[in-house]
Design a binder for these strands. Structure first.
Lengths: 341, 341
DNA sequence: CCACTTTGTTGAAACGTACCAACAATGTTC
DNA sequence: GAACATTGTTGGTACGTTTCAACAAAGTGG
């Protein structure tokens, strides 16, 4: 029995006679033979894995994206390797090294910074890359994103429309493109409404977590009442949940004293102590689409035309912001007012 | 320049003269050489990756564990490959195949079923396996778990102590060992308190998600008021959040009409519309410990002694269950009663 | 100046697979 | 029944590393 035949049984079973095939398969079972993927890859020159690098696995937004990616990848017989950069440039770099050493088929990534040179190198050396949740200035990458400027605009417009004058923006680091864009959109909403850009008070954080949200909430509450924002637009839902916790734990009311709007519309947003208004992104769809773009690129090779897909976000209005604010000064919350359900 | 020298520069730089080293490194930079991990693995016989197979990446409980695993793995220079079985036996099997083909250093897994034969085979063929969040009957595996029977006992005891007579258990599938154990613990609490085991009404679900929780909540509310449970112990926090949503959306009060206790104490539990009582598990610690056991096993080889680590859970009491129930019949919730903050 | 150690470099073998040209066996056609 | 096509099987080579014995060059001690 030659190794060539065994290889054929495994990879091109139609080439081998039925009973030989049987015999080989039985023996494989007997011996507990497991194909060595390393050798296979070495010979074939490429693997069956796709790298997915996200900013934060603890954020449901990204796990939902991962879900979409997995669906599309599995349908193609590929396996995904989920990497968590944790918004740290060095960790991201390390994972990219590992992925390149593994000769992955391609990489799906939400990059930490705006320095795309490492990705550029990756592409030049032949590993296709698709940006996720990030539009790109670079012409040599496919990308799937949501219009974050529009998202920020919609959120802030909604708050303005509800009569809020002093609006805060909480999130960070501002170096993160998503944060930047959402902020930009909010500023635009303000200026369009005749306010100054500087009227948007910024509470910058170092990350976008529940904990960071709580701290930002504390800071906001530290502002003297006369100047304290009556509404907060948070760069994502984890932040918003944190702010909500801080506000509630200080005995203030949402949206009575402080209205809150989040971003992503993760499942927990609707389940929060006060159901959270949020800018919805098609998370699974983003993941699926990105994967399909990547698979296309892998198949098409050099003839591939890069594409940018941009989805439109939608505002889900819930209790945390759904009340009209009285127009003059700080509204006193009457004690008899029923809390929003 | 021989390949051997290059290999030495990369792996045992002290063996090679400083200026040769320089020259090699410069050339590597010039040429954009990237080490081929497949070839390296093929030659070395094993990889630097550790497989982590979890039941549900969307569940923060598991991403927190993943976090702990990553910390410990990175410290060791290993890379983790995060796989999501989604509580499906076939997907789990497929991932195990892939991991074995990749010749991973070892596997950390929360298995879907109770059939350990596949894992047994893996171990026999030389891939160390450590069970996560699951004790084991098998003597040939390390494991890190939390005493789920105790957890269930503590949760149910707390509800009994608060005066609840009709308690429900929501979660599933019961085939999941974690669910089984938590249920068992709850039953024990009831019988210890002189009730019958059958007094614990079971609402079995097919998975442990928010959505499943909502449906379970609906079912519970469908029970005629006279027999409706006044308290629900949920197999995990996602379920509990779902039940909470269902109850609140029907205009009932938590804990007034229905008290709720969850399990895991994920970050969102405390942030829920009614802060959720929950059985806390040391999630990151579980991940770290499991990884360390695995790394030990990898290092020690055949001389390795398997260990079982079992952590004790703790009950975090919050608003969702923290009220004494009046002793006779269904307590009427006075309208003037303030909602819990 | 020879024998010996130390230091640095090299070439070859091996890992387990995929692929291909070559071959053997069988069937088909005139 | 000879020439040819078809089908099934087989060695051999290449993939890019690591490892190791062997070797060359330089330094050291007597």
């Amino acid at each position: 029995m030659s190794v060539g035949t065994v290889s054929n049984v495994l990879n091109r079973p139609d080439l081998v006679a039925p009973d030989t095939r049987r015999r080989v398969l039985d023996t494989i079972d007997d011996l507990g033979f497991v194909r060595n993927e390393s050798a296979r890859q070495l010979r074939a020159g490429r693997s069956r894995t796709i790298g997915l690098v996200v900013l934060d696995v603890s954020n449901p937004f990204f796990t939902d994206i991962a879900h979409g990616v997995e669906t599309a990848a599995t349908a193609n017989g590929s396996v995904i390797m989920l990497c968590n950069s944790g918004q740290a440039v060095e960790r991201e770099a390390r994972y990219l090294d590992v992925l390149e050493e593994q000769r992955v088929q391609g990489v799906l990534i939400t990059p930490v910074g705006t320095d795309y040179s490492r990705l550029d190198v990756l592409v030049k050396r032949g590993t296709p890359v698709v940006l996720v949740d990030r539009g790109t200035e670079l012409p040599n990458l496919c990308s799937v994103a949501v219009d974050d400027v529009l998202g920020g605009f919609v959120a802030a417009s909604h708050l303005l429309e509800r009569g809020h004058q002093r609006i805060a923006f909480a999130g960070g680091p501002l170096a993160l493109r998503q944060v930047q864009d959402r902020h930009l959109g909010a500023v635009k909403a303000l200026t369009d409404a005749g306010q100054k850009a500087s009227d948007l008070q910024i509470f910058e954080t170092t990350s976008l977590t529940l904990e960071a949200g709580r701290r930002a909430g504390e800071q906001i509450l530290d502002v003297p009442e006369a100047r304290r924002p009556t509404a907060v637009f948070c760069a994502n839902d984890l932040m918003a949940l944190g702010v909500l916790q801080a506000v509630v734990s200080h005995g203030l009311r949402v949206p009575g004293d402080v209205a809150i709007v989040g971003y992503d519309d993760i499942d927990y947003a609707a389940a929060a102590s006060v159901p959270l208004s949020s800018v919805r992104q098609p998370r699974e769809l983003i993941g699926r689409t990105a994967t399909e773009l990547l698979l296309d690129e892998i198949r098409e090779g050099t003839s591939h035309q890069h594409r940018r897909v941009i989805f439109k976000p939608e505002l889900a209005i819930r209790a945390s912001s759904d009340r009209r604010r009285s127009s003059r000064g700080r509204a006193r919350v009457a004690r008899r007012t029923r809390p929003a359900d």
